[in-house]
Design a protein around this nucleic acid. Structure first.
Lengths: 224, 224
DNA sequence: ACCTGAACACCGTTCAAGT
DNA sequence: ACCTGAACACCGTTCAAGT
């Protein structure tokens, strides 16, 4: 005789299932099976699949460290965003769910609210903070979508998968090939697989934060 | 008696269907119905749904203006990205498809290759260009994902939907309320609905381009 | 060479019924 | 109050068959 079902247990199982098997494997039916219950039993604890995903998302956002207050807004923001990034890396399905949501969940709103607070307390006008938040977009939650996903590209411990294919690609896309070669020289190993995601994320993040600080210093206004 | 089916006709119908009814309405069965054909007829012209989406994406990317060469890399990049943005606004489903793709399609590769060329010809090292491309991410194709979608939020011609709800939200998320109020003052109209997407996009784009130029001038290297 | 029909293994969700 | 069973209206895709 198993414990009674409740919302908590449903959400926990859903997160675990998504962590293990990916978000595509998360169906109401599969989740019910995981909980040794008939599909319709779930609907007493969660209105529908959308609400299930909202709940999962709130639980993930709840894992992000609260902001550690400090005199340097830049440091506080940077630290918290990198913490969010760690959380999102633990739950690789989460960013897809965030993107698919039509309205922000309470936890996301709370996160954004406190992030706005850091900028405002750091001397940013409401106007500038508004545009800054937009400019950050999903980066606020620690992710940014790339156009190619390195994780799948030419990874593996061996060299380039097929020299013939590689050289054909290089002929057709010479500029990409040049970049891939440059990336392989320092640090990286394989074409396309030689990117350090953490480095790229921080590069863009710091570029933006630097830009924000410059605008703040000069008292920038949108003046619309 | 209708014209014979072919890949071209299938892709065109798929794009039209997604434009009209949204990407969620695009099923193989529904598309077949639109073409007055049995579902399985599609599979002679397209291997599966994944390949259908790839084809649709390539057709959309093909609508983006080629780069208009010029002496100023910044202007060339900016112009082309804003053109891409217009295309993506015409096909609002496209960004979701891009995000869902596991490997870049030929058209996207070609687009990226030529974009890299603009930076390289503008005096950027391969190293810097590499990081710059990562920092741009999906913004290269004219979109960026926001955490809240203004299009759905509190839009409409009337004022805030419900004052009681609005003030409860303001109490719970005071910083967000402050920003919304500030946004409503200049230009915007309603809480959450007062954001000018085009302005926000260009704000972030220019901030990044400025940052890139500064790094280029000082001969920045990742020095890994 | 191209299109069809029937079938398989899935979905989310409703509704009426059980305990 | 909570769980169940059967059903509905969908999916993408296979396989063998038609023309």
């Amino acid at each position: 005789m198993t414990t009674r079902l409740n919302r908590e247990r449903v959400l926990r199982a859903a997160v675990a299932l998504a962590d293990e098997s990916g978000i595509d494997s998360l169906s109401m039916r599969r989740l019910a099976q995981e909980l040794d219950v008939v599909p319709m039993a779930l609907y007493k604890h969660v209105a529908n699949k959308e609400q299930l995903l909202d709940g999962m998302l709130d639980s993930v956002v709840g894992e992000i460290d609260p902001p550690e207050p400090g005199p340097d807004w830049r440091h506080v923001v940077r630290r918290r965003i990198l913490s969010a990034r760690q959380v999102l890396l633990r739950h690789r399905w989460a960013y897809r769910v965030i993107e698919s949501r039509t309205a922000p969940t309470p936890a996301v709103l709370g996160y954004l609210d406190s992030m706005i607070g850091v900028f405002r307390d750091g001397g940013f006008s409401a106007d500038l903070t508004h545009h800054v938040m937009h400019a950050m977009g999903s980066r606020l939650l620690g992710f940014s979508q790339e156009l190619f996903d390195d994780s799948k590209a030419g990874a593996g411990s061996a060299g380039p998968p097929d020299p013939a294919v590689a050289s054909a690609l290089a002929k057709r896309y010479p500029r990409i090939a040049e970049l891939a070669a440059a990336a392989a020289h320092d640090g990286g190993s394989v074409v396309g697989g030689g990117c350090d995601d953490q480095f790229e994320f921080e590069f863009a993040l710091d570029l933006l934060l630097d830009g924000f600080e410059r605008l703040r210093e000069r008292g920038w206004t949108s003046a619309r």
